[in-house]
Nucleic acid binder design. Sequence first.
RNA 1: AGAUCCGUAGCUCAGCCUGGUUAGAGCACUACACUGAUAAUGUAGGGGUCACCAGUUCAAAUCUGGUCGGGUCUACCA
Length: 1159
Amino acid sequence: MPLNSLYFCNFANIFWLYMAIRYKEYTGLNLPATEQEILAKWAEDQSFEKSISLRNGAPSFVFYEGPPSANGMPGIHHVIGRTLKDLVCRYKSMKGYQVKRKAGWDTHGLPVELGVEKMLGITKEDIGKNPSAGQAGISVEEYNAICRREVLKYKDKWDELTTKMGYWVNLSDPYITFENKYIETLWWCLKELYKKKLLYESVSIQPYSPAAGTGLSSHELNQPGTYKMVKDTSAVVMFKAVKDEKSKFLFDAAQSDELFFLAWTTTPWTLPSNLGLTVGANIDYVLVQTFNPYTHLPIHVVLAKALIHTYFKAEDENGDFERYSPPAKTLPWKILREFKGKDLETISYEQLLPFKANSAEAIREITPGADPFRIMLGDFVTTEDGTGIVHTAPAFGADDYKVGKKYNIGILTMVDREGKFIEGLGEFSNRYVKNYKDQEDYADVNVDIAVKLKKENRAFKIEKYEHNYPHCWRTDKPVLYYPLDAWFIKTTALKGRMVELNKTINWKPKSTGEGRFGNWLENMVDWNLSRSRYWGTPLPVWRTEDGSEEKCIGSIHELNEEIKKANEVLGGNVNENYLHNGILDLHKPYVDEVILVSNTGKPMKRIPDLVDVWFDSGAMPYAQWHFPFENVEIFAQNYPADFIAEGVDQTRGWFYTLHALGSLLKESVQEELQKAGIEVNDEKYPGLAFRTCVSNGLVLDKNGNKMSKRVGNVVDPFATIEQYGADATRWYLITNASPWDSLKFDLQGIKEVQRKFFGTLYNTYQFFALYANVDGFAFKEAYIPLDQRPEIDRWILSSLNSLKKRVTEYMDDYEPTHAGRAIEDFVDEHLSNWYVRLCRRRFWKGEYEHDKICAYQTLYECLETVLQLMAPVSPFFCDALFNNLNAVSGRNKAISIHHTLFPEPDAAIIDAALEERMQMAQDISSLILSLRKKVNIKVRQPLRKVLIPVQNKQMKDQIIKVEDLIKNEVNIKEIEYITEGNGFISKKIKPNFIALGKKLGAKMKPVSTAIASFTQEDIATIETEGVYTLHVNGEKIPLQLSEVEIQSEDVPGWMVANKGMLTVALDVTLTPELESEGNAREIVNRIQKIRKDNGYELTDRILVKLSENTALKPSITEYNTYICAEILADKLEWLPDITNGIDIEINDIPLKILVTKKV
RNA sequence: AGAUCCGUAGCUCAGCCUGGUUAGAGCACUACACUGAUAAUGUAGGGGUCACCAGUUCAAAUCUGGUCGGGUCUACCA
C-alpha cells in the first residue's frame, strides 16, 4: 500500500475519532426499536419532568385527565383518546406553556362491585352478612377491602400502556377517588350544596324488583337478556268525562250526557293507582260515536285521530247505527268532532276503580292539596300505539311521575314492595300483580281487573299483547317501576347558568356542544345522586330516627368533633372505636357505625346511601388537589381546565358532571379562594370547569363493528405498538379521520403510514446523513442568508414556513388531523419528491463549497422543522432524529425535541409567487413526462424543445424563473414561449360561471351554449377587442374578456397535453446529436448500475474497459469527459476484445464492458 | 322514541361552511418507466347514478326538507 494512502486512511479514522460523532445512519427503519431507545433515554434524562420544570414561571395551560377505571384492561380505543390528550399537551408545552398533567384513577362504582361479585361468586344479598356469627356471605368490611384491592388490578398494565404509547402524564402522584382526602373534598362539595338547599331527598321512580326486594340500576337493566318478549293482558279502558265548562264543547258535539276518554295500558294493575290522563298538545283527537263491543251500549269516545283505524274499520264509518244489534260483527262509527290535545287540558274525569284505599281523602292525605283525575299535556305522548291518551299512574312510571308532579295530581302506590296490592282495594286486596311467589294456582289479577271493567262498561278492548319488558337479571321476574327514596342535586335550579356557560365552551366538534350537550341541558332533570351499594363515597348525612332532624358533614375534622360530641351527650359506648384517632376510613361500614347527636340531643344515624360515582369524577377539579383543605394556590392556578378530551359517550357523563358542579359550586369556590387572599373575578372563575372540550368518536373494527370482547374483534394495543410502533399507530389514529368521527381501525392503515410517511422521512434523513457524513457538514458555517441561496432552496423554505403557519393554525384550532395531513403532504410531495429529487446532484457532486453548503443547510432546516412539527403527534422517532442531528451540529441545546419551542412561521420567508411558479414547474414537468410516456421516449433521451403557450407576461416571467429546473428534470434543451396572434395554437373558450352567473341569471344557459360554439376567430376577436357582443334570442349581450376563460388546447403537429390553464407541446424529433447524447447517458446509467452491483463505495474510483467493435463508439467518444466525470473514472479504455466483461445493450446496440475498482 | 354523527372509486378519506361545468388523493389492481434515497418514486389505465327522494337555483356532492342504512348516547313509554 502506498504511503500516502495509508496516511489518508489513518487520517480519516483519526479525523472521525476526533469529531467523535457522525450523523447516525440506520440499516433499516425499525420504529419499535427506536422507541425502546428513546423511552430509555427519556427515563434517564427525566425528559417529562424537565419538560414541565423548564416552563416554571411560564403561563400555565390546564389539562384535566378524565380518570379511567383500572379494573379492566386498556384497549386500542384508549390509545386514540390518550394520543389526542397527549398531543395537545405536548403542543402547548412546545408553545411555551407549563402543562401539568396529573393522572387519576376512578375507583368506585358498580362495574367494580359487579366484577368482585362475579369473582367471588356472590350476589348483592350476600353482602353485609356476619360470617363470624355463622351467616353465609361476606361482611361489608371484607367486601370493600376486596373492592379496594381489585379496582387497581390492571393498574400496572395501564401504566405500561401509558409509557409505551408515549403518553406523558404524571403517574407518580395520581389522584385516587377512594382516598380519604379525595372523599373529604367530595363531602365539602356536598355540604356546600346542602347549605344552599341544592341537596334534597325525594322519591324517584326506579326499576325495582319485588322478587329480589331491591332497586335496579340502569346498568343492571342493560345486562343482556333482561328485556324479554312477554304476552300481557292489555286493556283499552274508558274514563268517563265530567261535564262542566271545559268539557262542554265535547258534550255539545256528542249531544249526550256521557262520554269517555280511551286509554291503553299493558299493566292493568296500575289502574287503581291512576290519577290522570296525558295527551299530546299538538296531536289531533276526535270524538267518535259508536258502540261498546262488550256491552253493546251506544257510547261516545275520544281518541287520537291517527289511531282510529286500529279500532275501527274504514268501511264501517258512518255505518247504520239503527240496525246495530249484538252480536254484530261490524261496529258502526262516526266522527263527531276533531280538536287538538291542548283543547282537552285540565278536563276532569271520574275515577275508574274507586276503593277505600284510593279515595280522594286517601290521596289528599298523602299529597295535601292534590287535584287528581284531570287531563294533562305531556311531550312523551305518541300515536305509535294505544289511543294517544296515556293512563297516568305517577308511582309507576318516570314520565307519569314527572307530568303528574307538574299538574299536582298526587301519587298513589297501591302496590307494596313485595309486589302485591295493599289493603282497601276490595276484591283485589293482597293479590300479587305478577306471579312473584311462583304460586302454582296464581290467577292473573290483571285479567280480573279487565273482566270487572268489561262488566262495568269501562273496557273497550281487552287483548293479549306481546311486548318487550325488562326483567330482573337475578330473579328473572318482571321489573316494576316503583317510587323509591333518593337524594337529588337540584341541577335544574341552575339550568339557566349552565346553558349560558355552555355557550362559552369551545366544543370540538361544535355539534356535540350545541346538539347533544345543549339538548341535554335543555331537558335537564335533577341529578339522582344516591345508590344503594357498598363500595363508594358515602353520603355524609345523618338523621334522627323520626327524620325530624339531620346534619350534613363537610369535613373529617367536623365529623371527628361530632363523634366526640355525640359520645359526650349520649354517653355509654357510643362511637368508642372512633374517639381516639378519629375516623380512619370514610367508607362503609365504618361511617355507618358512627352515631351523631342532634341539636335536641337525639341520636342520628347515617343515611345508608352512597353517592353516584359520576359525582366522584365530576368533582375531580377540586378533589384532585384536596381543595379547599390544602393546595388552594395550586388549585387557583389549575382551575378551570383549558382543555379536556374524552369519548363522546362521556357527554352526559363526565362532561356533564364537571359542568354541573362547576356551575353549582361557583360561589363556594370563589369564597374559598377569596379567603385565601386570591384575586377572584368572573372572567377567571366563571363557574366553568373547562373551556375547550374535544369529544372523540368510537374506534370500530375494520368492518365498522363495535369492538367487543364477546365478538373477539378487539385490537390489542400492546401487540400493535410492539409490532408497528407507537409513532405509526398514533400518526395513523390522528391522520386517518378527525378524532370525533368514528374510526375504522385497520392494521393495514398503520402499515401504510409506516411505509409512506415514516419511510419517506427516514429515507430523506438517511440521504442527508449519508452525504453530510461524507462532506463533514456539521452546520458549523454561518447561516447563509436566503438571498444568497438558489431559487429551489428559497422555495422549499418558503413552503416550509407556509407549512409552519398552517400547522400552527390547525393545532390552535384543535384540528390535529389537518395538521398531520399537511405535514405528510409536505414531506412527501415537496421535500422528498421534489426538493431532494431535484437536488440530489448538489449533495454528491462537486466540492464542499457555497452551493453545497446551501443545500445542506436547507435540507437540515427542513428536517429539523418537520421533526418539531410532528413531535406532538408522534413523539419518538422525531426525537431520535432530532438528537442525531443535534449530536453533530449542536444547533439546539435542548436534550429532547419536546423541550424546544414550536417553530414560528416567518412571513418574510413566505413567497407566494415562488410557491406558485414551483407548482407550475411541477405541473409542466408532469405534463412533459406524460408526453414522453405517450411516445415512449425515456427521460434519459434528451429532446430539443417544448412549446408553452402563455396567457400573459406575468405567467411567462414566472415560468422563466423555473425554466432550468424544468429542463433538467425532463431532459429538454429549450423552452419556447408562444404568445398571441401567431395562429399557431388553437384555443378553447368556456364561460367564467361565477362571474357570468351573477350577471346573467336565467340567461346563463343559452349564453353558455353560444360560447361553446365559438370559432377560433371569435376567440381571437374577444382576446384582441376585450369584448364580444353576443346575440341571444334577439338580445344583445356584451361579453367581457374577464367573463370567459380561454386556454390553449392544441398545437397542430405537436404532441400536446393540458392541465388547467397550462398547456405543453413537445418536439419529439430525434436528431443524431440528441441520440448520441442519449446513448452517453445510457452508458452512464449502466455503469452506475454495475458499480452498485459490485458493491463499490460512493467515492471509489473505477477502471473501465470497453470492447471496440460497437456502433456506440462515436457517441461515447464524443461524451468521454462527461461520462468519466459521472462514473468516477479517469478514462475509458477501448480494447479489441474483453474476456470477463458484461454484455449490455443500448438502444439495441450491443456492447461489452468491464468495470473494476481502481486500487 | 329522542338527540347526534356518518353515508363520495373495491378500501381509507379530501371536497360541502362560502353552490359554478372533467368530483380529487392515497392504498389495492394492471402496464410501462426511473433510480448511488430503493421496503422509495414517476407516468398511464380501469374503477363514481357523490345513499335515496323532493325542493330552492340559470347551476346542487355542496343549500333546505324528507326517506333509508350504519354508529353512538339518552330514555324506556301507556
